[in-house]
Design a protein around this nucleic acid. Sequence first.
DNA 1: GACGTGGTTTAGTCGCGGCTAATATAAAGT
DNA 2: ACTTTATATTAGCCGCGACTAAACCACGTC
Lengths: 213, 213
Amino acid sequence: MEDYLKSLWKLGPKDVGTQELADNLNVTPASATKMILRLTEKGLVDHIPYKGASLTKKGELEALSVVRRHRLLETFLSQTLGLGREQLHEEAEKLEHALSKNLENAIAEYLGHPTRDPHGHPIPGPNGELYNETDLPLSDSPMNMVLTVMQVPDNDSNILSWLENNQIHPGVQLMIVSRDVFDGGLNVTIGNQKIRISSSIASLVKISFEDGS
Amino acid sequence: MEDYLKSLWKLGPKDVGTQELADNLNVTPASATKMILRLTEKGLVDHIPYKGASLTKKGELEALSVVRRHRLLETFLSQTLGLGREQLHEEAEKLEHALSKNLENAIAEYLGHPTRDPHGHPIPGPNGELYNETDLPLSDSPMNMVLTVMQVPDNDSNILSWLENNQIHPGVQLMIVSRDVFDGGLNVTIGNQKIRISSSIASLVKISFEDGS
DNA sequence: GACGTGGTTTAGTCGCGGCTAATATAAAGT
DNA sequence: ACTTTATATTAGCCGCGACTAAACCACGTC
């Protein structure tokens, strides 16, 4: 239920098709339809049959609350237990539904009310406030400029391990030296290393032009 | 489900009646019966109809695993977030079902494999090993001896707050100076304070004769 | 030894969140 | 316009964990 809201948020704000939603949650389209009906009933979702579904204001706030819990948990587990970025998502996924408001507050307090999680994703405020929407996909970034990695994906531990092995994580600086005309792959320098990043991965890494520290 | 195992463990090792179990979990006896049947089916519980239920070896291990997760979580939340003893139980109760083996291990590691939680309750090992079964109820303890508080209850935040307010928590030393003949209430010195502890509360506090530090 | 009472179980229902199989719809191709 | 095809929905089922109401059993009492 909370998972559906989260997925709708992640896939939104456009209307999300049943199939797309179902794929995202690893359930069948029939299950997704049923849930969409339930959520519509509760006023969390607007649904146009055979068209798609999107969150209402109320649904969006719910979704942001889940996302907040998720990202606070990731930050907390990283900070205390020192879990690697590849492990965080999976664990937070399980715990987020069981996190009380009290504990959410205590964790936020403990962490000093962080605005980014260990993947660089912005953490919504207690009332759904979101900042930091200005980061750019690495795949769309200009060449020969110093770029600061701001965000890496959180949900694919394979990609994440690869990035980690190549020293790519939030805060790191790099520069695009060339771009492959055919497949969009990037040749990048990072420190004194040169690596190649496929365009599919590059589209998942977000950067800014400022010093991200 | 895990809650049923935990309750059966807590109320055992004797046969537990449907009513008693249902009361403990705040459900109706009918619900308890149904669950007992399911657990029997799975080989976690032995059930004699109209008599009672008790854990099998397999069920006990399951139960101990839940207890371990619960107590590790309490310890972890206390240690990191500094939550008060009264709040720990409730929060751990929610999270325990969502704690993966991985995270359980990471937390145990982080805490240095503790054997007691903040209430002094023993934490079962990863394979269900339990020590520290020698602590005595304060209500049964001799007078005029230095006693060390080892365990306080975890599940009643009112009692816990009262104990906390009177400086009674694991590690504290006290002495029984007199015992009320009629109601079993205890007069106790703790530091230079004298307080009275009702027999019902005293039966929930466990002590040892050794220095508990 | 029948009788009543309290605890136990069964029967039937509900909401949640899944599934499969069958049906309905919208959009695109001929 | 008609048919194909992809996508959505409905219908009907299952397991979990709760509930109420009704039947059932065991035990102590008379």
